[in-house]
């Protein structure tokens, strides 16, 4: 940020010097604006867990199981879901009163016993978050996710990694 500020000031100086040169000079006021913000940080706090999902008997498709970013777990009748579930959580810090955009693309979950078997988890993100303070405290934000299963989905443990970035 220091390098950027220096360059901006030197640029203004160049304009001022040229304008002062000619005798028949005219004056034009130009507004100069700057927004100085603290560096953004984002920190992982918690993993997302969809628990254990037992497929029901018989043929079915389009069974969506997931957890919203608010923590509401959904398990359709074709499935039996057990075990603890959790949303993912991150903490973001920056400048008080600013809005931060959250980028959280879909996550590919890979079957740990057969990496040819994958599931796409659609992420439920708040999209943006407002920073209520400056500095170390920041604000936490959750991410949910949902997957679509069918009776032909391969069993096993599926894992994937988020790719979260934040930006002013």
């Amino acid at each position: 940020m220091r390098g950027l500020a220096t360059l901006w000031l030197s640029t203004v100086s160049v304009v001022a010097a040229v304008a002062a040169g000619p005798a028949h000079a005219a004056t034009s006021n130009v507004q100069v604006n700057a927004q100085v913000v603290k560096p953004l940080t984002v920190t992982w706090l918690q993993n997302l867990d969809l628990g254990t999902i037992a497929l029901g008997t018989g043929a079915f498709s389009g069974a969506v199981v997931g957890i919203s970013r608010a923590g509401v777990f959904t398990c359709p009748a074709a499935l039996v879901c057990t075990g603890p579930t959790a949303v993912a959580k991150y903490n973001v810090t920056g400048t008080n009163g600013t809005t931060v955009r959250i980028s959280a693309p879909n996550v590919t979950l890979v079957n740990q016993a057969d990496n040819t078997q994958t599931l796409i988890m659609v992420v439920d993100s708040p999209g943006t978050v407002s920073l209520p303070n400056s500095g170390n405290k920041g604000v936490d934000f959750p991410l949910g996710g949902r997957i679509t299963l069918s009776s032909t989905t391969a069993g096993g443990v599926y894992k994937g990694t988020f790719n979260v970035t934040v930006d002013y």
């Binding site: 999902i53 979950l109 979260v164």
Partner: peptide, 11 residues
Amino acid sequence: QATANARILKP
């Protein structure tokens, strides 16, 4: 980064 996990079981 956070991970996402699910254990899917056949009947």
